[in-house]
Amino acid sequence: MSEDRTTKSRAPLGKSRAPLGESPALGESPAALARLEHVIGTVLRGGVLISTVCLSVGLLLSLTTTSDAASGFLLNAGIIVLLSTPVARVIVSTVQYVIERDWAFATLTVIVLFELMASAVAALVFNRR
């Protein structure tokens, strides 16, 4: 039993999307969407894996040894990879939308990138104080 009484149909996924794909204005075909989801999934998994390894090893080193340099490097590297993963996800989305010539969404994702850059600039300004 579902709470949300939204439209339900037994039609197989994607089949009823066909009329959508025919209209170039609406862009996104099921294949393109699947490709974007696949690429994004890979980027996110990769970022999570690298940052998790860096943070785990860094945390173990910082708690078990006194070598602050190695653990500090790994911990900061892990955090930077973690913070970069969503940025990388936006970048691959922009690339994918440009390939699909979906200019509206390419523009939107570029705006998001600029906003993230503004944050990085603000961070540097704070750091200098």
Binding site: L55, S62, S71, I79, L83, P86, R89, S119, A123, N127
Partner: peptide, 22 residues
């Protein structure tokens, strides 16, 4: 994306303790 835009500012400000964050 939302949290990154905020977290970057905290990180730059030195408010993020790396060991505890890990």
């Amino acid at each position: 994306v939302t949290a990154t835009a905020g977290a970057v500012v905290y990180y730059g400000h030195g408010l993020l303790q790396p060991t505890l964050a890990a």
